[in-house]
């Protein structure tokens, strides 16, 4: 598992990257009440706003961590947004990106480095 400074986790599945938010991020957000997922086959560039998460407190975005194509989205989050709080690093993945070269993930933090970031 890799981690971004924007509190996303990235997991490799074949040539796809699965993207979610960390437990820390989910806790900071509070109760999630709405998730807006991207369209399938959307081409995204690093930093694009891909997902909108609305909690009871605020709206947040998940930004694309790398360039790629959205190949799968977690439809369960549309009907059950609270899953983001219940199981942020498991069942509450948001989308899967097809990327050309998985070595782009090398730039991101590993678990220990992320633990240092959030103190």
């Amino acid at each position: 598992m890799k981690y971004t400074e924007e509190h996303e986790w990235l997991r490799v599945e074949g040539d796809h990257v699965v993207v979610g938010i960390t437990e820390h991020a989910a806790t900071q957000l509070g109760d999630v009440v709405f998730v807006e997922l991207p369209e399938l086959e959307t081409q995204v560039a690093t930093g694009d706003e891909v997902v909108v998460i609305e909690s009871v407190k605020a709206a947040s975005d998940i930004l694309a961590p790398v360039d790629g194509e959205v190949v799968e989205v977690n439809e369960e989050l549309a009907s059950n947004p609270g899953l983001v709080n219940e199981d942020p690093t498991g069942r509450a993945w948001f989308f899967k990106l097809k990327v050309e070269d998985l070595s782009v993930l090398d730039q991101f933090m590993d678990e220990d480095e992320y633990a240092d970031l959030i103190g």
Partner: peptide, 9 residues
């Protein structure tokens, strides 16, 4: 992740 109206950082 980027918060629109309440910064995480």
């Amino acid at each position: 992740m980027w918060c629109r109206d309440s910064g995480l950082t």
